[in-house]
Amino acid sequence: MAIDVNKRRLFGSNKVNIVNDMLPWVADASQFIEQCTQCGDCLSACPENIIVKGDGGFPCLDFDIGECNFCGKCAEICKEPIFKDTAESPWHKKAVINDTCLAYQKIYCRSCAESCEAQALTFQVGISEIPRIDIDLCTGCGACVAPCPSKSISVKE
């Protein structure tokens, strides 16, 4: 009899997803997992409504809904000591484009670049126009994620 190990996630939290989708200004992933009470205050405080309940009931960001404007309201409302000062940089996450991008298949699409206010996404003109991410300009806000028709963009550490 074969065992589907993916189904085992139903009985516990998937800490990898929790860490990848954590809120801005979370000081330490372990501390977040240990001290977050899953109260939901941050969900209601988010003006963009992109904070959702994720694995194990932990709050996480869903960039398929929209972008983070880094307002800091999630950190301000939290009663637990899991966030660092919002005057600091929110995180070191950046947008990452995978191989399913339509541009790699020579299909014209610039939805990511058109949605990037920081202009971190550009297209190199030439034989094949593929997107380039300027890591210095990318804030990791996730504005490019939802508009991507092939779901080829994620925001990662």
Rank of each mutant, 00 (worst) to 15 (best):
C36E: 05
T139R: 12
A75K: 04
E48F: 02
P131Y: 01
F123Y: 15
A87G: 06
T86L: 11
K94H: 11
H92I: 00
A87S: 15
S30T: 10
C112Q: 06
E157L: 02
D134K: 08
I18V: 15
W25M: 09
P149C: 02
K151M: 08
C39D: 11
L102R: 08
I133T: 12
A95K: 02
K73V: 00
N14W: 03
D55L: 01
N98A: 02
L10S: 10
D85Y: 03
T86G: 11
I18D: 07
I51Y: 04
M1Q: 11
N49L: 09
G66N: 03
P59S: 10
D134W: 03
W91N: 11
R9N: 07
G142W: 01
V19M: 04
N69F: 07
I82Q: 09
N20P: 00
Q35A: 05
I107L: 12
T37K: 15
A143G: 14
A118N: 13
K84V: 02
K7Q: 15
P59Q: 08
V5S: 04
A120H: 10
E34D: 15
V19H: 03
G56M: 07
P59W: 04
V145Y: 10
S152F: 03
C78E: 10
D4E: 14
P59Y: 07
P81R: 08
L61D: 00
K151V: 14
P147R: 05
C36P: 04
C39P: 13
G57L: 08
A2C: 00
S30W: 03
I51L: 09
K79E: 12
C112R: 05
S128Y: 12
I65C: 06
A45I: 03
R9I: 10
G142Y: 02
K53F: 08
I107Y: 01
F63W: 00
S152G: 07
V52P: 01
G140D: 07
T100C: 01
D55N: 07
S115T: 05
G72Q: 09
Q38M: 14
C46F: 10
A113M: 10
Q105N: 09
C112D: 05
C68E: 01
G56C: 07
E88G: 02
E34S: 09
V125F: 06
A45D: 05
R8D: 09
S150Y: 04
I107T: 15
S44E: 12
F58G: 06
G72A: 10
R8H: 08
E117P: 00
P47D: 05
P131G: 04
K79Q: 15
D136H: 06
E114S: 10
V125C: 02
W25R: 09
L137N: 13
P149Q: 08
K94T: 14
K93W: 10
N17M: 11
Q105L: 09
A118S: 13
R110N: 14
K15H: 06
V155C: 11
I107D: 05
A75N: 07
K15E: 12
T86F: 02
E34G: 03
Q38C: 09
L137I: 01
S150L: 11
C116V: 06
V145S: 08
E129W: 02
I65G: 03
D62C: 05
